[in-house]
Amino acid sequence: MQPFVAFRSVGAPLNRANINTDAIIPSAWLRSAEADLARGLFAAWRFDADGNEIADFVLNVPPFRTARLLFAGANFGCGSSREAAAWALKRFGFGCIAAPSFADIFHENALRNGLLPARISEEDLARAIALIEADPNTRFHVDLAGEAITPEAGLPFRFAIEAHRKEALLRGDDEIAATLRHGEAIAAHATADMAERPWLYAALAPDAAREKV
C-alpha cells in the first residue's frame, strides 16, 4: 500500500445518507478483474442508459470532476462487501471520504487501500456543504497526521482515527506482513486448538471416501 500523503482538493458534495456499494460500483463492473472501475464509479448516477453523462450529477460538474475529497451522508458504503467500491473511488482519484459514519466492511476495505474514511460530525458536514454551495472552488487541505480537513477560509473539521490505523496509513503498511510476524503465536494457537477440538479437523483430513457425495 502506498503511504498516505496530505493533499489539497475541492470537495465534491454528495449529501445523501446510506450510499451503498452497489451505487458506488454497480455489479456490471465486477465481471472482470480488469474492469475500468474509474468509469464504473457511481455509474448509474453518472451516466444514462446510452453512456452519456448526466449533466447535473456532482461528479460531472466542472470543479468536482477532479475532486479528491468527497463529502457524503451517514452510513456510507453500506451493503455489499465488494472491495471494488474502495478501488473505484481510489481509481477515480479520491483519497478521502468525509462522512458522519461508515459501514463496517467498507471502512476496513478503505483503510486497506489507502483511502481515508474521515468521520466528521453532522454539523461539520452541513458546514462543509454550505461552504461548497457558497463557492464550489473552495479547496480543502486533507491532513491525516493532523486529523483535520481544513477549508481555505474557515475552521478545520476534526476527525478522529485510531492511532495505529493512522500510522499504518501514513507508512503504507502491508498488513499481511505484520500478521505473519505473529506466525509462532498463530501456529501455537492452531496446535492447541487441534488438541482441544480434534473433531473440528478430522472431517477435513484428505480422505477420498469422505469427499464423495
Binding site: 462487501s81 476495505n109 499481511i176 498463530i186
Partner: peptide, 22 residues
Amino acid sequence: IGVGTSETEHVLATQTLVLPRP
C-alpha cells in the same frame, strides 16, 4: 464474518483476520 478482497488474501496467507472487536 463477511470481508473484502484484501482480507480474503489475509485469511489465505495467515488463516487469521485482524478485526476491530465488535
